[in-house]
Write a protein that binds this DNA or RNA. Structure first.
Length: 492
DNA sequence: GATCGGTTTGGTTATTGTCA
DNA sequence: TGACAATAACCAAACCGATC
């Protein structure tokens, strides 16, 4: 898998993730060294508030990338985002499965991510966080010191009487007379008698005592503050735990309620099913199971379903081309889908249509080369053909669609041959869609392989015109690939 | 209301590294 | 060497807000 971004990160220095600690940042090709990941986490967590406040995240990731670059790690914004998401995702996954096989093991970025989750500023470099008094990291968590730096320079001693909190101080803030202390030019400067010396010595001792007491006092104060701070943290910790406990209890209650509801629903559903089955048995209709599978559609759209949607949409488009409301179109499509055995609401159909088009456009615009044998996005060929068709009919001489090259415009419009599709009747007759899923998957893959081969062949030797008719080799009646918008009716 | 662009979240797959 | 963890990258679904 080669990303467009990977060019800048191709340098491989043979160092793995763990060695990232010891080596420079440019190691390991696309892999993120530990330090780099930590830097990313740090930056991202620092900007967490900004991220939460902003609705447009793109520029923020640019900023993250810039900050990372300042640290010597060059990654694109997209990569930063992706990396963060992946790390976060993995963290969540491992956290959830901790009770299972991961028990006893901790994800190496657990502390950072946990801290981020708890809206707690991260420490850096990372070390186990929460026990605040134990690690040196906690220093980073401490608020900026409120005690003013102590003036150790005897020439600038603290102003004695400006201190508002010195009532209960034992320190005598009535300072010795500084002029006397530092003035070597006393009135009796000419005589260096013993008395003078003794006087000086006494004053010196006095100052010494004063600073000793001051230092002691400051230390006591600092300890007191630290104690108060730790108590506050402790209190907050307890509150947090209590909150979590309360939340847990609430959550348990909610889960219990949901469980009861589920049980109720299940029992009513079972009753309904039994009634329906009984009814069907009474009718003893020849093919009662044809519609049973309809409701089995999962949230993920199988390939065949996407194909059906595209075909329905393209076939119904002319009917709704006027600027009228589109809702009936999607209702129609939804109905068509259900006729084919797919239970999708109009909204879902519309959403799916938008999503596949969005992704298709995105890929086209990025000029990314898709692998011919790409197993993903089976609808690409169809959309491609559809858009080519549109661009031809709407603007045959104007700007080409997505900067299509001239020779590309000449290429035959290749709707994916419907020969790759199962005729609905075949699988509609199946007892349940689920049970056939594996089989269909295999068939899909086989069909895709055939499809790709055929596509290649056709592209190789066929540069002209429409492919009016491709006869199916199989035993069923399949639709023919053509550049005309195909009608869904032929499927049925 | 329709459309579009952006984002979030979750799933999947392929690859790489580590360790027994 | 195989199992497994970790990672990168991709994709899909769903949602939201802006714009027309």
């Amino acid at each position: 898998m080669v990303d467009a971004n990977s060019g800048e990160e191709k340098i491989k220095e043979g160092a793995g993730e763990e060695e990232g600690d010891k080596i420079t940042n440019s190691c390991g090709g696309n892999r993120w060294p530990r330090q780099e990941t930590l830097a990313l986490l740090k930056i991202r967590s620092d900007m967490d508030a900004v991220f939460r406040d902003s609705s447009l995240k793109g520029p923020l990731w640019e900023q993250v990338a810039r900050k990372l670059a300042e640290l010597g790690y060059h990654r694109s914004a997209k990569k930063c985002k992706e990396k963060f998401e992946n790390v976060y995702k993995y963290h969540k996954r491992t956290k959830e499965s901790r009770s299972g096989k991961h028990e006893g093991k901790t994800y190496k970025f657990f502390d950072q991510l946990q801290a981020l989750e708890n809206q707690f500023p991260l420490s850096y470099p990372p070390k186990p966080l929460p026990t605040l008094a134990t690690t040196t990291n906690t220093v980073a968590l401490l608020p900026p010191p409120t005690t003013r730096p102590i003036a150790t320079n005897p020439r600038n001693p603290p102003e004695p009487n400006n201190n508002e909190n010195n009532n209960n101080n034992n320190i005598p803030f009535s300072l010795p007379n500084m002029n006397n202390l530092f003035s070597t030019t006393s009135t009796s400067s000419s005589t260096a008698s013993d008395e003078d010396l003794e006087e000086k010595y006494r004053k010196k001792r006095k100052w010494k005592d004063y600073f000793r007491r001051l230092t002691r006092q400051v230390l006591v104060k600092q300890e007191e503050m630290q104690k108060r701070f730790l108590e506050a943290i402790d209190k907050r910790e307890r509150e947090h735990v209590a909150q979590q406990e309360a939340w847990r209890i609430q959550e348990m209650a909610r889960i219990n309620r949901e469980h009861e509801l589920l049980v109720q629903e299940r029992s009513t559903a079972a009753a309904k099913n039994a009634a329906v089955i009984a009814f069907l048995q009474q009718l003893s209709a020849p093919q009662p199971q044809t519609q049973v599978m309809i409701s089995l559609s999962s949230s993920r759209w199988p390939k065949t379903e996407v194909h059906a949607l595209i075909r329905l949409r393209t076939s119904l488009e002319p009917k709704y081309q006027e600027n009228g409301p589109k809702a009936p179109l999607w209702e129609d499509i939804s109905a068509g889908m259900s006729r084919l055995g797919y239970n999708r609401s109009a909204k879902r159909c519309k959403e799916k249509w938008e999503n596949i088009n969005k992704y298709f456009k995105k890929v086209k615009e990025s000029n990314k080369q898709r692998r011919e044998d790409s197993k993903t996005c089976p609808y690409f060929h169809e959309l491609d053909a559809l858009y080519r068709e549109k661009s031809k009919t709407q603007n045959p001489f104007g700007a080409s669609f997505h900067n299509m090259k001239a020779h590309e415009m000449m290429e035959p419009l290749m709707v994916q041959p419907e020969q790759q599709w199962r005729p609905p009747s075949e699988y509609e007759q199946g007892a349940a869609k689920e049970s056939n899923e594996g089989q269909y998957e295999r068939r899909d893959r086989e069909e895709e392989d055939e499809e790709e081969e055929e596509q290649e062949e056709l592209e190789d030797d066929n540069e002209e015109g429409d492919l009016e008719s491709v006869e199916d080799e199989g035993d069923s009646r399949y639709e023919i690939a053509t550049n005309k918008l195909s009608s869904v009716d032929t499927v049925e």
